[in-house]
């Protein structure tokens, strides 16, 4: 009898997650701008105050199109969005055409070692609404730092990394991986999401 009582009290305080039962997740995420993706995520959007990891097979598979609705919304609201050491030049006319207010978009050039420092500074400062980074030399400890920085700075962080890191554990609150699996169009698979079970479905990255 005592054992049952303990279990019930644990469930009541919501410290246990009951597998197989869909919890009514709190929809406090930052909307991704893609309705089909929002539905899949437990917070109904990008997790706030946390790091989201995007795992890519190569650059230019639609990773920016995935983020742009969110980034454009932030910049139009007057909040700063920072790109830390992007791998290519963000092409101003195209970003503008995508609805980004370029006055609020800051680009930081840095060497790979400094980029990690700059990424963490931006996340921690609380001055930026979203920070997008390409941490090339990040290990688990560095990602952990970034995750903590995003939490203390109240910032939505995006780390774009190579798909080869998918098998390594990561402290990021949300991990999305892009893969094509032989089909014509690729899809984003949720590999990890804090606060709910990993959805079986993938998000097809719509038409170009």
């Amino acid at each position: 009898m005592a054992g049952i009582a303990v279990l019930e009290s644990l469930l009541a305080t919501q410290t246990l997650w009951h597998a197989g039962r869909a919890t009514a997740g709190t929809a406090d995420g930052e909307s991704t701008g893609h309705a089909n993706l929002d539905v899949l995520l437990p917070q109904r959007g990008w997790p706030r105050r946390a790091l989201t990891e995007l795992l890519l097979p190569a650059d230019g598979v639609g990773e920016l199109s995935l983020l742009l609705p969110t980034l454009a919304r932030f910049t139009r609201a007057g909040a700063t969005v920072v790109l830390v050491a992007p791998p290519y030049l963000p092409y101003a006319p195209a970003w503008q055409a995508a609805g980004v207010d370029l006055l609020q978009l800051e680009v930081i050039d840095a060497t790979p070692r400094d980029a990690l420092w700059a990424f963490e500074q931006c996340l921690r400062s609380g001055a930026c609404a979203a920070v997008v980074g390409w941490p090339l030399q990040a290990d688990a400890a560095a990602l952990r730092r970034l995750q903590v920085a995003a939490d203390s700075g109240g910032c939505v962080g995006f780390a774009l990394r190579d798909r080869s890191h998918a098998d390594n554990p990561s402290p990021a609150a949300l991990r999305l991986e892009y893969s094509r699996d032989g089909q014509r169009t690729g899809a984003w698979h949720v590999r990890k999401c804090r606060g709910g079970p990993v959805p079986a479905q993938a998000f097809a990255a719509g038409a170009w």
């Binding site: 978009l105 930081i108 050039d109 400094d114």
Partner: peptide
Amino acid sequence: LRARLGDTAVHRVA
């Protein structure tokens, strides 16, 4: 950021 990365490191595009 500019103090550590250099004077031209932080910019915007237009």
